[in-house]
Design a protein around this nucleic acid. Sequence first.
DNA 1: CTGACTGCAAATAGTTTGCATGACG
DNA 2: CGTCATGCAAACTATTTGCAGTCAG
Lengths: 158, 158
Amino acid sequence: MVFTEKRIEQALHKHGYKVTPQRRVIIDVIIDSHEHLTPAAIHKRVLRENSSIGLVTIYRTIEILAELGLICEMHTGGGCRSYLVRRPSEHHHHLICSDCGKVVDFTDCDLKGLERRLVKETSFKINGHLLEFSGQCRQCNRAAANKNKDKLRERVEV
Amino acid sequence: MVFTEKRIEQALHKHGYKVTPQRRVIIDVIIDSHEHLTPAAIHKRVLRENSSIGLVTIYRTIEILAELGLICEMHTGGGCRSYLVRRPSEHHHHLICSDCGKVVDFTDCDLKGLERRLVKETSFKINGHLLEFSGQCRQCNRAAANKNKDKLRERVEV
DNA sequence: CTGACTGCAAATAGTTTGCATGACG
DNA sequence: CGTCATGCAAACTATTTGCAGTCAG
């Protein structure tokens, strides 16, 4: 089950956002398409319904929808440029610290079983996968913990 | 073990690319940094070594290095904009057809064991993960197979 | 009514291209 | 020496912002 138009409109409402005709069209387009759409692609389709909606409105609307967790962003290659020397091993993954950007590589991901099941269930031919964990490294985690401690202290003192 | 400067220069050479001072500096910077660097960040560091290297050269060099598989691109959120209605289930992943863009969702990814091991080995606090499989859906796979058949036929006929 | 929303135009950021000059092999 | 590489400027593309008018609640 996927969010319906009504559900999305309720969510907008609940968070103090207005439900405008433009937003309705944009939401319809995203719901009707089962592909992942770039802002420009959404705009193109939206224009078929209402030729006066600006691309800016698409950007502003998807920002809100993403913020409310109603749509999700995908990573389809290209665009996110960030590079690292590669390990010659044919295959590896990353564990990335979202605070300091530190990267730890790991090789064995043990997804064969899952992959086999997906192939069986979807009839896809699977060529590859992208797996990344994100979190906080030891230092950043500790730093964050200390900061919280400070904050608590402040609250008590005030 | 990671690609060394020498290895990378050999690879450039082997593929008919020249080893210039600019490329040396860029390669050094990428090797020396264990973080993932954006083109702009690479440029900044490169300027410390040689203040006359242009950002354009960074772009052209990383393009080659990526093409030769010497560096790898990472996905660190933001930048890749492409959206889809979200399933209300708290957690899911995608299987994406690289030909037609069709997306299949799946929920259970069974990474707990791997996650536990990573936590133990790296002392990271893991907050989340990004998992995507890419491949060809049944239709596109079939279409591709037919096209290949046609190609083979052509070759035979010519 | 009033604050949030919209469209336009302009600003900004990121990336690519054309071209004359320079240098690796 | 020829070919590929470089740097500059300009062109593009993608995204964000400022603003005045408009509209949902």
